[in-house]
Design a protein around this nucleic acid. Structure first.
Length: 637
RNA sequence: GCCGAUGUAGCUCAGCCGGUAGAGCAACUGAUUCGUAAUCAGUAGGUCACCAGUUCGAUUCUGGUCAUCGGCUCCA
């Protein structure tokens, strides 16, 4: 029987049923054969060798698409697995997908792999590529597949097959050379189509992501269309290292994390603290504009209160405790308790709600040693925390306002972010009605604000659903910053209530939210976002005065006074160095404006500003420069 | 917490098979008074992360601890 095949230009061909995609393509545009990695048959990705069994629309996948790149990388991971097994006999394979920017494969092997093994593995991979083995797909019944992988001693593959849903009767395997892998595919036609790859790092990874399972060895690598693109990517990684906030924190003298003081504890230097102050100052004003009340709770609270809130039962391992006058106190890991007590300090009417308590609250959490990371994961941090206590019917508008606040705040810094809505987990408390109400409220807020989001099924907190906003660092690692969480537990546990219009007591709902998240973490991603070159309004030093010679110092001092008095953050580079040297210093400190003062400027009672990107603004009277800077700051540039 | 790697001057890094350490930049001092990314010269700076062990002798070898880095798990 013949079938119809439609190609991307809508040209239609007739073929015998079962024709290979590659063969069909040959009839259409033979010259594309060499560059096509895979096809989509009726929108389903498939191998070039796959048979077309019905009337179909065919699309081509080549290296220029993310899909093509991902197929290529997945194929490279198979080649790597083959190479690893050949170089290290007895290594067992588990899973090896393509990921953003590359791929990995997890192995079990008696010895530890190190980066020193990479040249050996890479050399073997090159041989496999040179041999140009075709990737051959086969379909086996579950029983056959299990038998095959048992014979090959691949117990991880056997486990994967066993855990497939009942209704899956057949699995596919891919062979290249002597290597066989359980795999859904598709793959590129043959190993020879791999042009550029590199192994990058090795790390431990729990089998199936569960820390109770055995730890396997994961080798990360990447692959590209050609060597140039690979080199571009490797250069990008080098550039990313220069944006690392830990490096910039030292170079720009912002902060330190000192071994003597303790891991995960940040010490802010003057410039880092100034940056922090500017952010916090801005944020406080933004909160006041939005109807928040500023409050502040104590750093330690009696342990009984933590028992009442549930933290002692659910969060104890992450808490620090201390003893004062034979009383045990918990050092706060969250700010909510004091806010509960503020609410309870008097009888509340429905007319009082919503109440929005805002606190730049410093918390301590005992984070596991292996997770600490510069400013991004620390043990003491300050949240721009708020608890909003409202009536259930106010939930929607409150969440909307918060989502809007987050969008606004991220816009001010020019951040792009990813949003996740996390729904009810298996282990949770509360009624279905409450959960539905809260989840719908969160979802509506996202829709009303036109925020694109992914649903993270079952990943909510045990007490309520949440929206998480994630920012990326220089290496594209995601960090949770803003979050909005609904909480039915605390109002219950603290017996919060308000008097309704009906004169009866009612239970309010609580929202827990942060906008920037943790100030430390936010500053970390902020530093990497701007690569240390902060916009003028944030820059700890906005301008620097550079004298050409010692002669101009007296005049420069008067300029300095004037700038400082007008609220501009300014430094003096008056030391006995050449102008070029001072410019270089200011440039490396990423100071937005360098104000050159030579004889001409003294004469004209002016300054000669040079921007950090090398533009020369000519000669400006000091007042004009001050006005210019204030204008720029006003626009948050 | 787990896996792996790393830890030498403020920073970046040398230092072979065990004989107690160097470079560049930064710092300091002096000279130079200079117009848009590095002036010259000199000086100082290290319990080689820490603690044990082996050894006549350990920065080097062994073990442990701590910290950092890359991941995993967890999280703002």
């Amino acid at each position: 029987m013949d079938i119809k095949v439609i190609f991307p230009d809508n040209k239609e061909f007739s073929f015998k049923e079962g024709i290979a995609a590659a063969k069909a393509l040959e009839s259409w545009k033979k010259e594309l054969l060499a560059s096509t990695l895979a096809v989509k048959i009726n929108n389903i990705p498939a191998d070039m060798s796959s048979q077309i069994r019905e009337n179909s629309k065919i699309d081509l996948i080549d290296i220029s698409s993310t899909e093509g790149l991902s197929i290529l990388r997945h194929s490279i991971s198979h080649v790597m697995a083959q190479a690893v097994q050949e170089v290290f006999p007895g290594a067992k394979v588990s899973i090896g997908p393509s990921i953003e920017d590359g791929f990995y494969y997890d192995f079990e092997y008696k010895d530890a792999f190190t980066t020193e093994d990479f040249p050996k593995i890479e050399a073997r991979m090159k041989k496999i590529i040179a041999a140009n083995y075709p990737f051959i797909r086969e379909e086996l019944s579950r029983v056959e597949a299990i038998k095959l992988f048992e014979e090959r001693n691949e117990n991880y593959k056997v486990e994967l097959i066993n855990d497939l849903p009942e209704n899956v009767k057949e699995v596919s395997i891919y062979k290249q050379g002597t290597y066989i892998d359980l795999c859904r595919g598709p793959h590129i036609p043959s190993t020879g189509m791999i042009k550029a790859f590199k192994l990058l790092s090795v790390a431990g990874a729990y089998w199936r992501g569960n820390e109770n399972n055995k730890m396997l060895q994961r080798i990360y690598g990447t692959g590209f269309a050609d060597e140039n693109e690979l080199n571009d990517y490797l250069n990008l990684l080098e550039e990313a290292k220069k944006r690392d906030h830990r490096r910039l924190g030292r170079e720009l003298d912002l902060f330190q994390v000192n071994e003597e003081a303790g891991p995960g504890l940040v010490i802010f230097h003057p410039k880092g603290m100034l940056l922090r102050y500017i952010i916090e100052d801005w944020e406080k004003k933004e909160h006041l504009k939005r109807g928040y009340d500023m409050v502040m709770g104590p750093q330690i609270l009696k342990v009984d209160l933590w028992k009442k809130s549930g933290h002692f039962d659910h969060y104890r391992d992450n808490m620090y405790f201390t003893e004062v006058d034979e009383q045990v106190y918990g050092i706060k890991p969250m700010n909510c308790l004091a806010h509960m007590l503020i609410y309870k300090s008097k009888i509340r009417s429905y007319r009082d709600l919503p109440l929005r308590y805002f606190e730049l609250g410093t918390v301590h959490r005992h984070e596991k040693t292996g997770v600490l990371h510069g400013l991004l994961r620390v043990r003491q941090f300050t949240q721009d925390d708020a608890h909003i206590i409202c009536m259930p019917e106010q939930l929607n508008s409150e969440i909307c306002a918060i989502a809007d606040f987050v969008s606004y705040a991220m816009g001010v810094f020019g951040f792009e972010y990813e949003v996740e809505l996390s729904t009810r987990p298996e282990k949770s408390i509360g009624s279905d009605e409450d959960w539905n109400l809260a989840t719908t409220a969160l979802e509506n807020a996202l829709k009303d604000n036109n925020i694109h989001y992914e649903v993270n099924e079952g990943d909510g907190a045990f007490y309520g659903p949440k929206i998480d906003f994630k920012l990326k660092d220089a290496l594209k690692r995601k960090w949770q910053c803003a979050t909005i969480q609904c909480d039915f537990t605390l109002p219950e546990r603290f017996d919060l209530n308000y008097i309704g219009a009906d004169g009866e007591k009612h239970r309010p709902v609580m929202l827990h939210r942060v906008i920037l998240g943790a100030i430390e973490r936010f500053m970390g991603v902020l530093i990497e976002h701007y690569a240390g070159a902060f916009p003028v309004w944030l820059s700890p030093t906005q301008c620097v005065l550079l004298t050409v010679t010692d002669k101009q110092i007296p005049y420069a001092e008067t300029v300095y006074e004037k700038l400082i008095q007008s609220g501009i953050r300014c430094e003096k580079y008056f030391d006995n160095e050449k102008l070029g040297y001072k410019i270089r210093q200011a440039q490396m400190q990423k100071i937005p404006y360098m104000l050159v003062i030579g004889d001409k400027e003294v004469e004209a009672r002016s300054v000669a500003p040079r921007t950090r990107d090398g533009k020369n603004l000519g000669t400006l009277p000091v007042d004009e420069f001050i006005a210019l800077l204030h204008e720029i700051c006003e626009k948050k540039q």
